[in-house]
């Protein structure tokens, strides 16, 4: 199966995210956005807003300083 046919799921570990927005800024497919709700630390964490657009490039996991993003493939 080529990468194109795979389905990717991006998950943000809400309470580990400090809402710095780097993943949002660097995601080419605009998969991620800012959550309206606060997390336990009092930040607005990132959350997938267009999850179906994820191409599994892992850019968001690379720029995340807090290891708060997990990307799964099926």
């Amino acid at each position: 199966m080529s990468k194109k046919d795979k389905i990717f799921t991006v998950k943000v570990r809400r309470d580990f995210c400090k809402g710095c927005g780097l993943c949002i800024a660097f995601c080419k497919k605009e998969v991620l956005g800012v959550s309206a709700k606060l997390n336990r630390m009092g930040y607005h964490p990132a959350e997938p807003v267009k999850p179906e657009a994820c191409i599994g490039c892992l850019m968001c996991t690379q720029v995340c300083p807090d290891l708060a993003i997990e990307v799964y493939s099926e």
Partner: peptide, 10 residues
């Protein structure tokens, strides 16, 4: 303990 967006974490 790093601030949001700090490069140390990376």
């Amino acid at each position: 303990h790093y601030c949001p967006g700090c490069g140390h974490g990376i």
